[in-house]
Amino acid sequence: MILSNLETLPGKTIVAHYGLVQGSTIRAKHVGRDIAAGIKNIFGGELSGYTELLKESREESVNRMISQAQELGANAIVNVRFSTSSVAQGAAEILAYGTAVRVE
């Protein structure tokens, strides 16, 4: 599966469009990470626990998007976009969406 945030794939031609595919996940961090982040909040700077968490969630939502595209018989997803929103205290939703296509 080839991903791209362009509308086309350079060096390849799109032969079929399968429409929008998406994947999303809502993750909450566990208490240990939250306490560690609370301490780090005093000093500022990167909260690597959260960076890791959001990275994992993003990979998960991309994987869900990919499996949706595979069900449709696509071999690439173009125009991929990400969106993050904080749905509740301590929980974040990560959404990935794009257009499933077949390229040659």
Partner: peptide, 23 residues
Amino acid sequence: VPAPETVRTSKMVAGSVVVSVDR
């Protein structure tokens, strides 16, 4: 895409970071 006919491969890349302010 500059010179699209010469593109060999393309790949989507991403980087992220979470930061907070100090007191």
